[in-house]
Amino acid sequence: MKTIVFLEHHDSELQKGALGVLSKAASLGGDLTGVLVGAGVRELAAQAGKFGAGRVHVWDDPSVEAPLPQPRVDALATLVEEEGADTVLFAGSVLAADVAAGLAARLDAGLNWDLVDLEARGEELVGKRPALQDTVYVDVGWTSTPRLALFRSGAFDPSAGGGGEAEVREFSAELRDFSTVAAMVEQAHEESSGPALEEADVIVAGGRGLGEPEKFTLVEELAKAFGGAVGATRAVVDAGWYPYAHQIGQTGKTVSPKLYVAVGISGAIQHKVGMQSSSVIVSINKDANAPIFEYSDLAVVGDLHEIVPKLTELVRQKRGA
């Protein structure tokens, strides 16, 4: 197996999701390399070695600085051919989804997406994709190579194995005319004190049960105590209590942190889809019949206005913050 993993980066950091996919790929064996495209990214490449990449193909150039998908399709198509790769893996993101789909069309290669796992059965690869609001798992395969896979964000934790620094190999590709006509005019990135939702180990999310928008501070404080990120349900985003960028669910983000704390969230299907692959789910709700308890690991029936501030205090003490 000859695998290439797309290494997405942001703010001079390799993204956790991509490193998770790299770690997973390392566990499957074979020749494993990463690809890094951007400007000023060369220094990041070596780090990928710890997560299993023997080599990283780097295209470090101002012409590919903006995080736009089509130049990256050109880059990957060139690499797949040069390297004779049979497998290309992506950690799910807005950018990676467009790169993966564009590459699938360019190479006429099968793309399975929203995968939560991948296993090798002999020479074959089998992906696992949750379907129909995650009520059924579908095992999916490929009928030709290269095989492309896009994983659900947070599907795998990065695990730094024994590898040292990855060897850096510079490359470039010819850009197609239509790949270069879209241009980044402006990037307005939110200043956030905590980690991005998709990258956070802990997410504390709030719903209607908070009662009023001001009570979102309870959620924010608990998230801060954990060093985590804040999530919100569609209902509270629609009501204008919290920005859309924090929405978790079918029409928002899909997350799978180590710990998901649901505060005053009833657990509509729309929300469940976005968070149910979290490792541990703790739900706090005064209604003992709230559907969210059906897919929680810890069901806390009680008044969130009493429990959450107390919990925040205790978490602060434990974490020494």
Binding site: H10, V94, V181, M184, V185, K253
Partner: peptide, 14 residues
């Protein structure tokens, strides 16, 4: 105006 994991990107194309 494209919404990403990190905020908003304004992208223009012909």
């Amino acid at each position: 105006k494209r919404q990403t994991e990190f905020g908003y990107d304004l992208i223009e194309a012909p």
